[in-house]
Design a protein around this nucleic acid. Sequence first.
DNA 1: CAGAATCCCCTCCGATACTG
DNA 2: CAGTATCGGAGGGGATTCTG
Lengths: 122, 122
Amino acid sequence: MNSDCTTYHCPVDATLDMIGGKYKALILWHLIGNTLRFGELRKLIPQATPKMLTQQLRELEEDHLIIRTVYPVVPPKVEYMLSDLGNSIRPILETMYNWGADYLRENGLTVSCSMKFPTKDS
Amino acid sequence: MNSDCTTYHCPVDATLDMIGGKYKALILWHLIGNTLRFGELRKLIPQATPKMLTQQLRELEEDHLIIRTVYPVVPPKVEYMLSDLGNSIRPILETMYNWGADYLRENGLTVSCSMKFPTKDS
DNA sequence: CAGAATCCCCTCCGATACTG
DNA sequence: CAGTATCGGAGGGGATTCTG
């Protein structure tokens, strides 16, 4: 998370601190129901440079929202998946998704990527 | 909002863009069911400098989440209240509040200000 | 009372190049 | 493949001072 405070002014700030990073919501969203490799995330979020993607993934890992698994093979293989805590944040993402989608639609704005509301699978 | 894009990569980003500002969630939260003056908001959010408070309020106004009313009197009197759009975002704040409160409790962290979950009044 | 204006630091983040 | 290292610009945000 971004803030190093052990005291927040508001629980909402604590939540925003964990998912408010530049690409964090997008990463979490893509990881819902999927275990993905670094390269797969890069393709899904091409606007993020490797540096930024790594940084955001590390912060999500520090906050225990995702689990990073390194396989000691050559070539390297690293997988990312949601933790239980990460899964518990899904309702927030969905609530924000629905509100944002309504807002964008009512304002005639568009979404550039193919992300859709996930069917309630795993 | 922070981004000037008319195209988002995700509705969640659009939502975060509107409420993710430094003090925006806190401002919106305090305005739920209350019409407040600038000075009252300053007392409720003392960690925000006047400059930052003004900036965040202006952005919330541009995004039509709040309504700013100026009374042409001396001394100046300005009131802020939630718009219909601002009120519509309340479920998001509540969802984030609940998740954040659970998270902080389970991690033994504390909230510094006296903000509580609002009773479901106006 | 409700801000506007200035100054300035410092972090975020993109671009580019390199590595085990 | 999955990163790391380095540089540098833009702007977020604090402290302070001033004003109608």
